[in-house]
Amino acid sequence: MRKILNTAHVYMIIGVLSGLFYRELTKANDFTGDTQLSVVHTHLLALGMLFFLIVLALDKVFDISGEKLFTWFYWVYNAGMVVTVGMMALHGSLTVLGKASGAAISGIAGLGHILLTVGLVLLFITLGKRIPAKAKAKQDA
């Protein structure tokens, strides 16, 4: 459970720093248009910090970290977050700096979204295994 809490904490720190980065980069470049950089902050806080705080609560109730698939979920989901948010930050920064971004950035961001989806599927499979086990243990007691 400590690993889940630490993960949420790291996403909180990076999320807050990304908001600061967005504000300072756009201010330094007198940028007033739309950029993906503006939503990196929100993605990190919602899909990172808040999501892992929910996973922490689920772990407390259902002991999902006791399942083998939980480790797969944890690493696949986090890899998806790193790739997705990294590409959003890169694309957004290039937009602010007035540089073109290629199709490769969108393609890699798509791979990040696929990893996030696979991670979510693994989480639901893990939950599906633990909820019946928890209900059965409660009936037996």
Rank of each mutant, 00 (worst) to 15 (best):
D59A: 08
G128S: 03
H41G: 09
I125L: 09
Q139K: 14
L115V: 05
S106I: 09
S38V: 05
I131Q: 01
Y11G: 03
A104E: 13
A135F: 12
G48E: 09
K3L: 13
L90K: 10
I114G: 09
I13K: 02
F21Q: 01
A103T: 11
Q139W: 03
E67H: 14
L123W: 09
G80P: 04
T26M: 06
A57H: 11
M81S: 08
K138R: 13
K3D: 14
S38M: 09
D30P: 00
K68F: 06
V16D: 04
G66H: 04
I105G: 02
V121M: 10
L56F: 15
W72V: 08
H43W: 07
V40N: 01
V16K: 06
T95H: 00
W72I: 06
S106L: 11
R130I: 00
V16T: 12
T35G: 02
F73R: 05
F62K: 09
K99Q: 14
V96K: 00
V82K: 01
G119M: 09
W75G: 07
A28T: 02
D140Q: 14
G107V: 01
M49A: 13
K3M: 12
L94M: 15
H91M: 14
L94V: 03
L47I: 15
L122Y: 11
K60S: 13
G19H: 07
S38T: 08
F70Y: 15
V82Y: 00
A104K: 01
F51C: 09
D34S: 12
S101T: 13
L127E: 08
F124Y: 11
V39E: 00
M81G: 05
S93G: 13
A109Y: 11
